[in-house]
Write a protein that binds this DNA or RNA. Structure first.
Length: 457
RNA sequence: GAGGUUGUAGCUCAGUUGGUUAGAGCGUCGGAUUGUGGUUCCGAAGGUCGCGGGUUCGAGACCCGUCUUCCUCCCCA
C-alpha cells in the first residue's frame, strides 16, 4: 500500500543545491552578527502556550500553531467550554504547548529567566525556524527561518545606528544591488495621534497610514472613518499623505507638525540622531529613508521601527525590527529597553533566486570524482582519495567499474568540478588524467603531485 | 479567519457539445557507443485524471463535499 508523498502546505523540502544556498545566506548573516558583537543563543522550538498567547495582538493568537495534548492529558479537555461555544477556552484545555511564532518573545522570556547569568546590555543573535498558521502566499510560508539580533538592557541610540549598518553590511555582502531601509519612530506616530486629538486611536491610525501606498489617500480616509476617527482629526492627519522630500525636509516638516506634542518631539530627536549619525558614517549600498507610513502591526514597538525592502522585486519586506521599551515587563522584569532586527532568510533566498545573485560556488558539491576502471585502478584511487581528503579536498571514487559514459554522466549530474581518470596506461605511467567538467579541458598530472593541484581556482 | 483560483505521467502542460484502449515535450532507464558528460538518433518503463459522493446507458470533462495550489484581504519575514 503506497501513499502519495506530500508535505504540509506552507512547508518545503530543500535539495542539496538549495541547502548550499541557504547556508551561504545564514553564514553571511552569522558572520556579520559576530562582527557586530552579538553572541548566539538557542531556545526550544515550542514554548508553553502562556508564553506566546496574547503577545502578538488580537489576530496573533490565531496564527500560533498549538500542540495537542497527548495521552492522559487529553482528559483535561474542557467539554463545558465546548458546549458553551467558548472555543478559545476549549482550545486552551486541549493544548498547553505551542510552536514559537517568532524569536523575540521567546528571547524576552529567556532574558528574564536567565537574568543572573547574562551581562547587560545583552547582545544576542539567534537563527532558528519559526512557525505561523498563516495562509501560504508568495514569500509567505508556515515554516521559515528568522535571523534575529537584539540588544536588551540599554536605551542608547547607538544600537539603532549599529542595526542600520548591519542591514547595510549583510545585504551588501549578499550582493543585493538595491535596497531601502525604511525607518520611523513609534513616538512620532504617537505624536501624530496626540496632535490630531485622537490619542486613543493610535493603533487604528498607524495601521491605516501604513496602507497609504497600497490603498491610497481615499482608502486611508475611508478606513479612518470606519474606525471612528473624527473628521477634524482626519483633517489634521491629511497633510501627512502628501509627505515627500529628503529625510531632512521631512524631519523639518514633522518638527513643525508635532511642535505641541512632547512625545512627538522626542521621537523626532531620536530619529534625527540616527539619520544624522548614519549620514556621518556612511552606508555601503543601502538607501535610508524616513517613512512616516511605516507602522508595522506589532504592538510592542515604542521607539525606532525598521523595515527593509529589496528594490525591483515583488516581495514584501525582507527584514524588520524596532525598539521595545518594556518587552521583558510581560515576564515580570521592568525597565529593560530592547532593540532588535530580523532578517527573513527565506524571503532573501527568494529575492536572490529571482535576481540570480547566488555565487557559482553554491551550486558546486563534490570537487573531484575518480572514475572506476577496475580493481587495480580502484586500489590506487582509494589511496589518493585518502591523501586528498587529508588535504580537505572533497572527493570520492565511483563505486563500480561501470561504463565510462555512465560514470561521466553521473559526474555531470552531480555537478562535480573535476573528474580523474586512472586506467591501465595511467597506472603504468604514474599519472592521472584530470578533466575540468565545466571547460572540458583535460590535463595529465603526476600522481604524486595531485595533492598540490590548485583545486579551488 | 473571508473571497477567488487551481489540480491529468517524476516535471510543464494538451485532452473538442459527456462517447471505444487518456496524449505530447522534458526528465528517467536501456541501446547506437568496451577510454570521455552536457548535443544527436532509436527503444522502453511510467497514470485508481487530487480524494469521496452524486447525475448519466456512459464522467478526465457536469453537480455537491473535501483537501491542495496560486492570488486578494487580514496580518507579517
Amino acid at each position: 500500500m503506497s501513499q502519495k508523498p506530500a508535505i504540509p502546505k506552507g512547508t518545503r523540502d530543500f535539495l542539496p543545491v538549495e541547502v548550499a544556498r541557504r547556508t551561504y545566506i545564514f553564514d553571511t548573516i552569522r558572520k556579520a552578527f559576530k562582527t557586530y558583537g552579538f553572541e548566539p543563543i538557542e531556545t526550544p522550538s515550542f514554548e508553553l502556550s502562556g508564553t506566546l498567547l496574547g503577545k502578538y495582538g488580537e489576530e496573533g493568537d490565531r496564527l500560533i500553531f498549538r500542540i495537542l495534548n497527548s495521552g492522559e492529558k487529553m482528559k483535561k479537555a474542557d467539554m463545558e467550554a465546548l458546549a458553551q461555544e467558548n472555543l478559545p477556552r476549549f482550545a486552551n484545555s486541549l493544548s498547553e504547548k505551542a510552536l514559537r511564532y517568532d524569536l523575540t518573545v521567546p528571547f524576552a522570556r529567556f532574558v528574564v529567566q536567565h537574568q543572573n547569568d547574562i551581562a547587560f546590555p545583552f547582545k544576542r543573535y539567534q537563527i532558528q525556524p519559526v512557525w505561523r498558521a498563516d495562509r501560504p502566499q508568495h514569500g509567505r510560508y508556515q515554516e521559515f527561518f528568522q535571523c534575529d539580533a537584539d540588544v536588551v538592557g540599554s536605551d542608547s541610540l547607538i544600537y539603532e545606528l549599529d542595526f542600520v549598518q548591519l542591514f547595510d553590511e549583510v545585504l551588501t555582502d549578499l550582493k543585493l544591488p538595491s535596497f531601502t531601509i525604511k525607518i520611523n519612530n513609534r513616538k512620532i506616530l504617537s505624536g501624530i495621534a496626540e496632535v490630531s486629538g485622537a490619542a486613543d486611536k493610535l493603533v487604528d491610525i498607524t495601521v491605516a497610514i501604513d496602507k497609504l501606498d497600497k490603498i491610497g489617500e481615499e482608502g486611508v480616509v475611508k478606513e479612518l472613518e470606519e474606525k471612528g476617527v473624527t473628521a477634524t482629526a482626519i483633517e489634521r492627519i491629511k497633510p501627512l499623505f502628501t509627505f515627500t522630500g529628503s529625510n531632512a525636509n521631512k524631519l523639518e516638516m514633522m518638527r513643525t507638525f508635532l511642535a505641541s506634542s512632547e512625545i512627538g518631539i522626542k521621537g523626532i530627536e531620536e530619529l534625527s540622531f540616527v539619520l544624522d549619525q548614519t549620514a556621518e558614517i556612511g552606508l555601503k549600498r543601502a538607501e535610508l529613508e524616513f517613512d512616516i507610513t511605516l507602522a508595522r502591526g506589532l504592538n510592542y514597538y515604542t521607539g525606532a521601527i525598521f523595515e527593509v525592502k529589496a528594490n525591483g522585486v515583488k516581495m514584501g519586506s525582507i527584514c524588520g525590527g524596532g525598539r521595545y521599551d518594556d518587552l521583558t515587563g510581560l515576564f515580570g522584569m521592568k525597565g529593560m529597553s530592547g532593540v532588535g532586527i530580523s532578517f527573513g532568510a527565506d524571503r532573501i533566498y527568494d529575492v536572490l533566486t529571482e535576481l540570480e545573485l547566488f555565487p557559482e560556488e553554491t551550486s558546486k558539491g563534490l570537487t573531484l570524482l575518480f572514475v572506476n576502471f577496475g580493481d587495480k585502478e580502484q586500489a590506487l584511487c582509494l589511496k589518493l582519495v585518502r591523501q586528498l581528503r587529508n588535504a580537505n579536498v572533497s572527493c570520492e571514487v565511483y563505486p563500480t567499474n561501470s561504463k565510462l559514459q555512465k560514470q561521466m554522466k553521473y559526474a555531470n549530474d552531480r555537478n562535480v568540478k573535476y573528474v580523474a581518470l586512472i586506467g591501465e596506461n595511467e597506472l603504468q605511467n604514474g599519472v592521472v588524467q584530470l578533466k575540468n567538467m565545466s571547460s572540458g579541458e583535460q590535463l595529465s598530472v603526476a600522481v604524486d603531485q595531485l595533492v598540490d593541484f590548485e583545486w579551488n581556482v
